[in-house]
Structure formats: structure tokens, C-alpha cells
Amino acid sequence: MKTVSLTIDGKRVKAHEGEKVLWAALDNGIYVPNLCTLRDNSEPSAACRLCFVEVEGKKQPVPACTETIEQGMVVNTKGPGALRLARTALELLLASHPVDCAHCPSSGSCELQKIAAHLGVKLKTRRFRKLLRELLVDSSSPVFIYDPNKCVLCGRCVWVCRERLGIGVLGFAHRGFERVVTTFGDGPIAESKCRDCGECVVACPTGALTFKDKQGTVKSAHKERVETETTQ
């Protein structure tokens, strides 16, 4: 396969032809915030709007997950325009996220925390109104707990359950602000065709899906696997 060389944040890097900027950057140790991408998903969903970068010659910042690399391309992941959009997107997510890290089993492994630190954004944002939904937490599964209020709708769990495992229990339903990852008829997971494999929990970047331990309390067990998932 042909390789292409480009510059990201002043660093000369090489990547396979046809690769997206996001992966070229991550592969070369340059972090670009992202939530909704998975490497083996061929069509970028481009939903989270966190991976904006600036490309020389383009008037506006572009999402790195949809931008294909080109020979000689000059990318800046820290341009003011890109950072402004990424920060706004993150703050919008945080404003609709119950920021209760002290009691959240995912604290420490949560990608929202990681991205906030990267972008220099406070977790308790002041700029926007707090807009929470009051959705029921589903603890019916013997293996994990699903708290849809903490979900950022990245779709990783949906993709894994469907494409990688071929089960297709989880999916998106409803529209707009009401959009949610759920099961058929919004029913409890235990009543669905879930096989309790827990792969969705591993894929989840936030505290929306967390493992139960043997005592039935919640355990944060997926930190390492998340790390390898996103940076390999």
C-alpha cells in the first residue's frame, strides 16, 4: 500500500494512502479528542464533533475523522478555530451529562475527563444551562448496569453489538434531544436477546455502561481495555 507523508502539529508523519487524518495523528502519538469513531467501522459516523482540526488551505476547521490525508497536507490540531469548536462540543456534552465523578465507577477511565483535561475545559461548565434527562437506569443485566443519562450517544456499543458480534440488541431510537441508545421497546436489557458478553461495556467511553462485580455493586474494570481500544 502506498504511503503518504504529511505534517501534523509541525511533525512530519507517514500514513497509508486513503487514511483519515484522525488515525494518522493517533498512530503517530498525536492525540485528537474523539468519542464516536472506531477503527474498523468503515464509515465514520462523525457525530461527536470533537475531533476538529485545521488544515492549511481550508477556511474552516474540519473533523479529522472524515478528512482523508493528502500528500503534503499540513494539519494543526491546536488551532484556535478547531479548539473553539471542540471545546463548545465538549461543554455541550458536559452540560447534558450528570457530572458526578466522585460517585462514578468510570472516574479515572472516563474519556470525557481525558478530553476535558486535554482541551482545558472544566467538567462543571458554567457557560451553558444544565439540561439533563431523567431516564431510568437499567440494572437488569447480571453483568452490567446501563445508565442512559451518562450516555454521549457515540454509538460504539451499538456498533460492537451489531457489527462485531452480530447480536444487534442495542440500537438508537427516538429523535433529537430524546435520541437514546436502547433495546426494542425501551425494555429492560435482561428481557432482550443480550448474551451478557459485556463487550458493549468495554466499548463505552463514559460511565453509561459499567460492570457489576460479584456482589452486584459496580466495578470499573475496563480501563485498560478502553485504552488499547482507542490508541492501538
Binding site: R162, G168, V169, L170, G171, F172, A173, H174, R175, T182, T183, F184, G185, D186
Partner: peptide, 11 residues
């Protein structure tokens, strides 16, 4: 998948 029918119906 059943959820996909539900997803379309609620959309």
C-alpha cells in the same frame, strides 16, 4: 434486529 424496527418507528 427488532431494535431497528423500533428505531425507525420512533424516529
Amino acid at each position: 434486529p427488532e431494535i431497528d424496527v423500533y428505531g425507525v418507528v420512533t424516529f
